Amino acid sequence: MLIAATDLVALLSPSRIEALADRVRGSMPAERDRSLHQLVTTPAARVALDRLLTTWEQTAISGDVLAGILVGAAYARQQAQREISVELVWTGPTTPFVATRRTEQVLLDLIRHAQSDLFLVSFVAYDVSSVVDALNAAAARGIEIRILLETSASHGGSLSVDPIATMRSCVPSAGLYVWTDRPAPFTEGRVHAKVAVADGSTAFLTSANLTGHALEKNMEAGVVISGGHIPTGLRAHLHALIETKVIRRT
């Protein structure tokens, strides 16, 4: 019953859930209102409602109890949404059917709204003047900035360019980190993650490198997560890599 109610609550607005709760109050499964389906408008919601009603008919739960379950599930969902949000991030061709945020927009927002610390990880970094300007502005207001990048072949990495030197000249106040001591089974490993986390409260996971093409022209996808345990865990993990000397400052 709880699973069926949760599935339905995920597909309907709180006002529709309240209307359903009003309809079932004071009734028993065998007496349920046959017009309940008029309150749902999508095929997925109708299937979820059918599943809930079928489950209800197999119990002796009163309509008052079912109404309480629905209202409680709706409230819990609203609270969870206030505490954590996940948004789709997309660079490249868009359609009018799905709302997305652009990679550059999300990254700049994350940098500009950081309150204490910021950690960025990318494979390469160059040709990103908007990001560089935002990072320097963040540093100027006292934000601690750490950046982990893949290194050039001459410094133990895999790149023909040197993103560390580029970033050092562009954002001189940032702490720059590398992963060059790679024991088995990571001997041929690369810094291929593309993530950013601010204050342990907002995390951005993306396919995009810190390059102009990635932020403006490529087809790139990611998610930005605000609240919850994932940003906190990501920040703690990155800091632990420093503390355990898996990555080192250069």
Rank of each mutant, 00 (worst) to 15 (best):
L176E: 10
R23G: 06
L238W: 00
D133F: 00
I84C: 14
Q79T: 06
V24N: 07
A134Q: 04
R112V: 06
G26H: 08
L110N: 03
K194D: 01
H237W: 14
N136G: 05
K194C: 02
T41G: 14
W56D: 05
A139S: 07
V121D: 04
H37T: 08
V171H: 00
S207Q: 08
P96M: 06
G156F: 04
A174W: 02
T55C: 12
T55F: 11
E150C: 10
G63A: 02
A19H: 06
L52W: 07
I225C: 07
V24A: 04
A153F: 08
Y126A: 14
A153G: 03
L8Y: 03
A138L: 04
P29Q: 10
Y177D: 03
T206N: 03
L241H: 08
L215S: 08
K245G: 03
E150Y: 09
A10C: 07
H37V: 05
K194N: 01
R34L: 14
I147D: 08
A138N: 01
R82N: 13
L66M: 05
A5T: 14
R141C: 00
F97E: 06
W56G: 03
I164H: 09
A208H: 02
I111C: 04
L66P: 02
S85I: 04
V128R: 05
K245R: 15
L120A: 03
V131A: 08
K217C: 12
T42K: 13
R32S: 10
S130Y: 01
S154I: 08
V47R: 15
T91A: 11
